[in-house]
Design a protein around this nucleic acid. Structure first.
Length: 455
DNA sequence: TCTGGGGTCCTAGGACCC
DNA sequence: TCTGGGGTCCTAGGACCC
């Protein structure tokens, strides 16, 4: 924790709705709701005029319509939101090189890196007011609420205290008297489930949290969360403002207005999502090894299945093939098969375990050179390492799973497989626990990034 | 016709490795 | 040879955030 209030948190007010009101004068002063407008949509942002009628984020659009029928319901123009966000983040980076965006409408700014004569309360207060004015100007009328404090925790809480269009500076040394009377749910990370567990233990306010022992919190919430809250409740938060955060996963999902039960249609939708995910990976210069699907049934129970490939991919057909294979496993499952056929409301595809293409290539070159030098073939790896014969691999690759054997060198594996036709397409199984395996000549060219390594 | 979409982080168990 | 302990990877699910 710092000795001066040099962490700034800025939050644009009712952001999506405010952009709509800015761009469409007829909406100004009127209730505006941005979110899903379909039968199963939820509210992303409600303007303050709509909030008066009880409309809230994450509420179903159906509920919002009944509470505020005269509101304008809009599905959102994300290009406009991204553009407004870009302007604001650019402005923040002008005042400090250390800006950490949390979403399109929110960021931390480290004032220790800003050009200020000092970091005393009057100075940072004037600075923040000037910043809010500049945001208003640069965005053609959007308002921002700002919190200033000695830590991220308190700055974020502070920015919310005088919304909209507010500024709250928490003077160093006064953090605990601010936090103690507040509900524990004020602390980011304490959601409904955590709040309920705490309540059952008689913990409602931050003061209660502070009085609870570390052991008790860890017992209630686990090591990481319990330990974190024990610190936060004392106003202790040393998290740094971090400018660059690397993406860890890329995913696409969709909820359908009516439940899907046609397996061909489900497969087709998954394949399309796989293509979108791959395109976004390529656009970001990323690739990943783990492909996941997500399926939500009519009763809202949600399953996920994932598989890790032998090497990273950003290839649409490879992601699609993996997704189809994971779906086929669900369809073949004695419990999950009937669930799928009974109706699916959400489908999703994601890729995680991301690697940077450029780094991957450099790494591969180095490794190839090393290999040429010492002329030593890798030890035949053990079968359990083989990502190369994962279910869903196409026939050529299953027969000759050439490629990287993760963590153990390269080899050629010959695998017997059996194919069974199902309504969702062919499902393969691999009767041999221990596929035959021989070392692979490193000079042999790779054909497909599905199974070939980064060589 | 309750309950979005895109993420992050954590937990826990099993397999495996040293 | 037997036993045990860590560490890592993988998978599934859950909580949470905006």
């Amino acid at each position: 924790m710092r000795s001066q209030a040099s962490v700034l948190h800025l939050d644009l007010d009712a952001f999506f709705a405010a952009v709509e009101q800015r761009d469409k004068p007829s909406l100004r002063g009127k209730p505006v709701v941005v979110g899903g407008v379909g039968g199963r949509g939820v509210v992303a942002t409600a303007s303050y005029e709509a909030r008066v009628h009880g409309v809230r984020s994450a509420m179903s659009t159906r509920e919002a319509r009944s509470r505020c029928p005269h509101a304008a319901f809009l599905s959102g123009r994300f290009h406009a939101y991204r553009e407004a966000s870009r302007v604001v983040m650019g402005l923040l980076r002008e005042v400090s090189p250390l800006v950490e965006p949390l979403s399109l409408d929110e960021a931390f700014v480290d004032l220790e890196r800003a050009d200020l004569p000092d970091l005393e309360v009057p100075t940072v207060t004037d600075f923040a007011q000037d910043l809010r004015r500049r945001v208003h100007e640069a965005t053609d009328g959007l308002t921002a609420s700002v919190g200033l404090a000695t830590s991220k925790l308190v700055a974020k809480i502070a920015s919310d205290l005088d919304k909209p269009d507010g500024l709250v500076v928490v003077a160093p040394g006064t953090e605990l008297e601010l936090l103690r009377p507040m509900r524990a749910t004020i602390i980011p990370g304490v959601g409904p489930a955590t709040a309920q567990r705490l309540r059952r233990a008689g913990i409602v306010t931050v003061a209660d949290l502070e009085a609870a022992g570390l052991d008790e919190l860890v017992r209630l919430l686990g090591r990481a969360h319990g330990g974190g809250l024990h610190q936060m409740a004392r106003g202790r938060d040393d998290r740094a403002v971090v400018a660059e955060r690397e993406a860890k996963s890329v995913s696409v999902e969709g909820t359908y207005d009516t439940d899907l039960s046609d397996l061909r249609l489900i497969e087709g939708l998954l394949a399309r999502q796989a293509g979108e995910v791959a395109a976004r990976l390529r656009a970001a210069g990323l690739s990943g090894r783990t492909v996941s699907i997500k399926v939500r049934f009519h009763d809202f129970t949600t399953l996920s299945r994932s598989m890790t490939l032998a090497s990273p991919t950003d290839h649409g057909p490879t992601v699609a093939r993996s997704a189809r294979a994971l779906l086929a496993e669900l369809v073949a499952g004695p419990d999950t098969g009937p669930q799928v056929r009974a109706g699916v409301r959400l489908l999703g595809v994601g890729v995680s375990g991301l690697a940077d293409w450029v780094q991957e290539d450099l790494f591969a070159d180095t490794e190839a050179d090393d290999e040429a030098e010492d002329e030593e073939l890798p030890e035949p790896p053990r079968a359990r390492h083989l990502g190369a014969w994962a279910p869903g691999m196409d026939v050529e690759h299953a027969e000759l799973g050439r490629g990287w054997v993760w963590g153990a060198g390269r080899g050629v594996v010959t695998v017997r497989f059996e194919t069974r036709e199902t309504p969702a397409g062919p499902v393969r199984s691999f009767p041999d626990d221990d596929p035959a395996l021989t070392p692979w000549s490193p000079t042999e060219p790779a054909e497909d990034d599905a199974v070939s390594g980064p060589a």
